[in-house]
Amino acid sequence: MNDTNQMNDIIKPGNIVYKRTDLMTDDILHYCPGCGHSTVHRIIAEIIDEEGIQSETIGISPVGCSVYLYNYIDIDCQEAAHGRAPALATAIKRLMPDKYVFTYQGDGDLAAIGTAETIHACNRGENILIVFINNGIYGMTGGQMAPTTIPGMKSSTSPYGRDVEMMGNLIKMTDIVATLPGTYFVTRQSVHSAVNVRRTKKAIRKAFHYQKLKKGTCFVEVVSNCPSNWKMTPVESNKWMEENMFPYYPLGDLKDPEKQQEK
């Protein structure tokens, strides 16, 4: 009884070490249980809240699972046609250079239909942040093969596994944009554990900071899961991701000039 009282005593506003940011709206996220999209939304909202830049930030949602980003983060948003978010961001940033502009795109959006917009925005060095969620599959349309689907991986349009000879190779957009002179900070992260969430949050915060300094395009890939379309539990999907996705998509910074200077 005493213990219970003591436990309840802890639950007081003054003792809060973590609570959901008010910059997330009250809408219940439509994502499947355990989906990394929700986590990345929350991280972005937390950073905007903590940095106090709500009135200076414009987000761009893609076509795909995260089309409804604008329902969840309490900021001004535009919804782009499939793959075109970097084009929108380019104009928004150039017309309002003092605002923070970020796109949020999945792998189908960014690495297939929007390849040209992505590469050219990065190559021009637009002062924007591109957040790239890579779960190796088209989630919204029901689990079709994506350009990032790893060899042998099953999807509804590669039901026997991705046959590279017939279906082509996976594409590593993050590695490609890291080679472009317009990008300043390029990193690959994940959100499947608390330590990785903290790293991703640090990376995205850094990208906002670099945008303020007008350093060029910042590109943050988050290798993520899709429990529903991978047909696994969320915990299993994260394990599968570590074992199967990370060898193709190793985590870490691909380009960070300030870090290189420190060395």
Binding site: A80, R84, A91, H120
Partner: peptide, 24 residues
């Protein structure tokens, strides 16, 4: 006035979408 040569007509019209969305 911002003037930009886009990578394609597709990109150009979507830049227009973005700019127009800002009331420009």
């Amino acid at each position: 006035m911002v003037v930009l040569q886009a990578e394609s007509e597709v990109a150009a019209i979507n830049m227009v979408y973005g700019g127009a969305g800002c009331g420009k």
